[in-house]
Nucleic acid binder design. Structure first.
Lengths: 343, 343
DNA sequence: TGAAATTCTTTACGCGCGTAAAAATACTGC
DNA sequence: GCAGTATTTTTACGCGCGTAAAGAATTTCA
């Protein structure tokens, strides 16, 4: 690795003894050149440390190798984790992922799409904010940029959706709670940020019907993405008013449950499976922190890896197919029950 | 907003009735053209929706408007939060931030620096992994790219460092614990990932000397960035062996404390200020989840906003000064004690 | 109103690379 | 050693924009 700063491909080509167009061909696909030339170039690469100018490349290719990853709220470790999986899958496929977070703000989500358009990405993997998203902005974006939605579905938008089967989450937990204790009530936000919440409520109601118990839905106030605080405040209020219809509570998601558990703790109410416990709490998502709550949280887990891998695969099929699929597909992965101590 | 896709600046210039070089000038600084021409261009902008090709721009400018933000571990909401602050500050200053996470992996950190070099950013804000970082790689990087380190300092690298005054964190907590209860022992990882941990230990030892108590440092096993799990395992082991030298525990950071609290809960050991509690636990960082632990965590808070704003300011001063400062500066912000229920 | 100072237009080149076409060269199997 | 094929070289253009220089137009202000 000599300390010779190389200006451009022309210069590098000369130093490696290969013509520039061939070197260009090499960088687009090392296997597209003869073995002997590839080796010459690779030898020069060892020696001189050169990388093609990414801006010149992207300007001239019709399609960049960029992939946008958009999540609604990166301060939620769930999204940080899934973004990590997706990032790795993109890199492995030879693409350059760039991560964006809307930070819970619809205006920022629109701005991200604007910036993304300028990046001319080969494709975008997007978990939209959901209820707060500007649907028409997303629709317009998806018409221009090959997009696969994940985690949170918006009917008809994007070329595909990959996420978790919300119904299966609720089926698992309700079934388990009913079997091991008694039918749960359902604890959720009155105006959930995310459409998954609605599917979960619907699944809860369906399970009540199927198992023959009277459903009890508790809808707490609060807006935004500070779910823990919302769950906590809602929990404190319920406990204060003694308004819990059942000692078994199923939270719509783990972050609400984390807040609820902290409220219970503060009020001195024990949660868990033991006889001396007044409440049982279960939830959905298998949030990275759910194993460290007090008590540890019984929950239904996403298949992070399957969702990420499938979303990325779908995107690359889409990209290689020219950006359009014959038909919008929806892929859902089932939940896995994680039994811990809270229920 | 007519549906006329505009190909390039030439075309847009013609449609707006202004010459291309002037339009170019406008996009570089709207105030550099006469008011009347600016208004013409802005009117055309309303009508035709055009944005200069970012790749062509970056290819031709010596300096891009890109800013890299590198954090060691994005699944830690602390870094997600600070990244959010920094992002906003960059956007406000007219730059284009891009977020990268090393995900706790030194190899990835190096790869990020490689990619960052290709992006030719105006500057980089970097919170290095710390102990695991390849120091020489970072040093080489900092020589080529104007870099401001934040959160985690590496002696002499980057043009400036902005972070928190670790000593003040420990001073605050030790002082408080000693005053309200008794001198704490110090709970940390034997091989901490981050150099801040060493500063905190040193400050603890100094405080012990100053206040005249015998320091007790507990160093638990475990490597990597899964601090909660490490804290939990360490806590379980300590409790099992009854090896706690003091009923007052000061954790090096909140994530360890979260793990420790979960261990205590699991073992039925009450933590808090009330007389019936066997332990008190305090910590440092004011992690976003620390208010939802059971009990809520008494901790010392970073001044997120000050750290982010100052880091960004430093970077822009650096960039505008041509990428070099006369002298490497270190700016530290004091901690603020957050009293909650755990101690 | 006129001259000086601004600002704009015109023209032209360069950035680093993708890519096409034709010619030259290197391999392959027989 | 040959024809036939695969690969490389040579040459050349284009991508969209930054930017420099010279002259034309506009504004400013005495």
């Amino acid at each position: 690795m000599t300390e010779t700063p190389i200006r451009n491909m022309e210069e590098f080509a000369r130093l490696s003894g290969i013509s520039r167009p061939t070197v260009s061909k090499f960088f687009n696909d090392p296997d597209s050149v003869r073995r002997s030339t590839r080796e010459k170039i690779e030898a020069a690469l060892e020696k001189y440390d050169y990388r093609p100018n990414i801006y010149a490349i992207n300007q001239n290719r019709k399609l960049t190798k960029n992939v946008g990853i958009v999540v609604p709220y990166l301060a939620d470790p769930f999204f940080a984790e899934i973004a990590r999986y997706i990032e790795q899958a993109c890199i492995a496929a030879g693409y350059r992922p760039t991560l964006f977070s809307a930070h819970g703000d619809p205006a920022l989500e629109i701005e991200i799409m604007d910036n993304l358009r300028a990046l001319k990405p080969a494709g975008v993997l997007m978990a939209p904010l959901g209820r707060a998203s500007d649907k028409s902005a997303i629709e317009a974006f998806c018409r221009n940029v090959p997009t696969v939605l994940f985690d949170s579905n918006i009917e008809g938008m994007g070329e595909a959706f990959v996420g978790s089967d919300n119904a299966s989450f609720v089926t698992e937990t309700v079934e388990y709670l009913t079997r091991s204790a008694e039918p749960p009530c359902f604890f959720e936000m009155k105006h959930p940020a995310n459409p998954n919440a609605n599917k979960r409520r619907a699944a809860y109601l369906a399970m009540a019907e199927k198992l023959g118990f009277a459903p009890q839905v508790i809808q707490i106030e609060g807006t935004g993405w500070g779910f823990e605080e919302i769950g906590r405040q809602g929990g404190l209020k319920l406990l204060e008013e003694n308004a819990l219809p059942s000692p078994v509570i199923l939270c719509s998601n783990d972050r609400l449950a984390i807040g609820l558990l902290s409220a219970c703790y503060e009020r001195g109410i024990r949660v868990g499976r033991e006889p001396e416990c007044a409440l049982r709490v279960a939830s959905h998502d298998d949030h990275p922190f759910s194993r460290f709550t007090c008590p540890s949280l019984t929950t239904a887990a996403h298949d992070y890896a399957a969702v990420s891998d499938t979303a990325v695969e779908s995107l690359f099929r889409l990209v290689e197919g020219g950006g359009k699929l014959k038909e919008r597909s929806e892929t859902l992965f089932r939940a896995r029950l994680i039994m811990r101590n809270s229920a």
